[in-house]
Simulated assay, not measured.
Amino acid sequence: MQMPRDSFPTDWSPPPVEFLNKPKKAPPAKKGPLEDLEKDPPDPNQKVELASLEELFWNMASPSQQAGTPEISSGSSQCYINNLDYLLQEKRMLVEKFSVSLQVISPVHPGETVFLPRRHPLPCFLDSSRLKPHSPLEELFLRSSLPEQLSFLHNGLLSNLYLHAADCPQPLLQWLFQLLTWPPETSSRAFGLLWDLSIDGLFRQPDEDMHFWCPSLQEVKEVFSSLGAYNPALYPQGPFQHSARVLESEASLDSQDPPQEVALDIKLNYIYKFLTLCLLVRPVSYTDASILDLMELLCRAGLDVGLCLLPKTDLQQLLLLLLERIQEWPGKLQPLCCALSWVSDHHHNLLALVQFFLDVTPRGRWVLLNHIPRDLSRI
């Protein structure tokens, strides 16, 4: 008769624990990540350690990217840690990869070739055919040659003749305005006398019968042409080169060196200041169409290569005053922006042109906010 087996064991001793006291085996030789993946493909249900994937990524990277990167251990005792030093170093690598050299974008706009240097100033002749002298000294001045008339200006004799006269002849004012394009020793005296004669005439004439001379748009264009400016529409092949005949006629005058950037800036500022005075005294001296043409001419002159680093204070004041003198506003805003957009083909020059208009008046802010419409194909 077989005895029934017990439901519970009679030996209640703990199981053997000798495997806990066995020495640890040396880890197998380290294999490359690619070799591990080819020979021993991981179980799809088993997760790949993050350190192995990170090491695989850096091994496949280019040598330039591996340089200077921290070494990450794939042992079981260490793992990938997003510490601050590593994140900063990774950010420096991205900055170096996508950085742009400062020489690519110049801090100064390239400018346009507007004014060409002249060896000699253009002769400015005084039209005295319809002038009647009131004194022997004035008769001598009107009948003198151009160098002798300039000596009258330099010696201050013209101030004695016309400063406190009852009526200043308009041809004299036109002649002085043309002399603003001459070298500084002549243009400075011409501007001083032109300014004094204009201011003196305001105090001597009643308000209801005030005669103040303002140069026309054509006269302003002729003055800019005398400074060496050329019209790209008239000369599409490039800047106009003076012929030998023109140089021969100019050689009869006192020879002067080509005007430097500072000398050109001084002459332009004389013109800007006198035009500002004209607009203050006679607000309706120019029509809206003439104002748009004048602003285009002034902005083109302000982009000259030699004037890029010089301040444009007088030009900015004149442009703001011209904006205020436009009668049909804001109807002329779009034609103005369209006209100014063709002043230059370079987007950097157009940005500098917009900065000529200060945001100190509502109309100036209108120009800045609306920008200049540009064709993207030209940029």
Rank of each mutant, 00 (worst) to 15 (best):
Q2E: 03
S7W: 14
S13H: 08
V17R: 15
K22Y: 02
P23H: 04
K31Y: 09
L37R: 08
D40E: 11
P41E: 01
V48Y: 05
L53F: 07
L53W: 03
E55V: 15
L56A: 09
L56G: 00
F57A: 13
P63V: 04
G68F: 11
G68R: 05
P70R: 10
P70H: 06
Q78F: 10
N83H: 03
R92K: 14
R92Y: 14
K97S: 06
F98K: 00
S99V: 01
S101E: 08
L102W: 09
L102N: 04
I105F: 13
S106F: 01
V114I: 08
R119D: 10
L122V: 11
L122Y: 11
P123M: 08
S129K: 15
R130A: 13
R130N: 15
L137Q: 11
F141T: 07
L146D: 11
S151Q: 05
G156K: 01
L157E: 01
L158F: 01
L161E: 04
W175S: 00
L176T: 04
Q178N: 11
L179N: 05
T186K: 08
T186R: 12
A190F: 08
Q205Y: 00
Q205H: 02
F212C: 05
L217K: 13
E222A: 05
V223S: 11
V223F: 04
G228L: 09
G228S: 02
P232N: 06
G238C: 07
E248T: 08
S249V: 03
E250L: 12
L279C: 12
L279P: 06
Y286D: 01
T287R: 12
L292F: 10
D293R: 15
L294P: 11
L297I: 07
R300H: 02
R300V: 08
L307D: 02
L310K: 04
L315C: 12
L319K: 11
W329I: 09
P335W: 07
L336W: 08
V343L: 06
S344L: 11
H347F: 09
L350P: 09
T361C: 07
L368N: 15
S377F: 08
S377I: 01
I379F: 04
